[in-house]
């Protein structure tokens, strides 16, 4: 059965019998970071953020965590910019990667 993960390693199964039947919480995404091709990054400006969590709701990945203030998980953020577009308070800016 799927196990709750605290570290960043996928679940290791001693026996194939311990594996679930289908990819359910096996943690393969914990090591498979899907953000290497990001060319721009959203940055949340704490002073402007009203904690409305609209960015969290709109993030399709979901790579924004509902913390205070919300935080971007750059291991999975692809830089699509939806959060930047949706933020009603201009509290998210876009920076170029590699600069």
């Amino acid at each position: 059965m799927g196990k709750k993960q605290k570290n960043d390693q996928p679940v290791e199964f001693k026996s194939i019998k311990d594996m679930p039947d289908t990819p359910t919480s096996v943690g393969s995404m914990l090591v498979n970071k899907t953000s290497t091709w990001r060319s721009i990054r959203p940055v949340i400006i704490d002073e402007k953020c009203k904690r409305c969590m609209i960015c969290w709701k709109y993030c399709p990945e979901p790579a924004i965590h509902p913390t205070d203030p919300p935080s971007v998980d750059y291991n999975y953020c692809k830089g699509c910019g939806i959060c930047y577009e949706e933020c009603p308070f201009d509290a998210i800016i876009i920076e170029q990667e590699g600069k």
Binding site: M1, P10, M19, S28, V31
Partner: peptide, 27 residues
């Protein structure tokens, strides 16, 4: 045993790396 349940969330049908896919086919 496992179902979509807001009180016991699981990822369903996620991206599965070569680390695990082969074993699912075996199963």
């Amino acid at each position: 045993k496992i179902k979509l349940d807001v009180d016991d969330p699981h990822a369903f049908g996620a991206l599965t790396s070569p680390e695990h896919y082969y074993e699912f086919s075996y199963k």
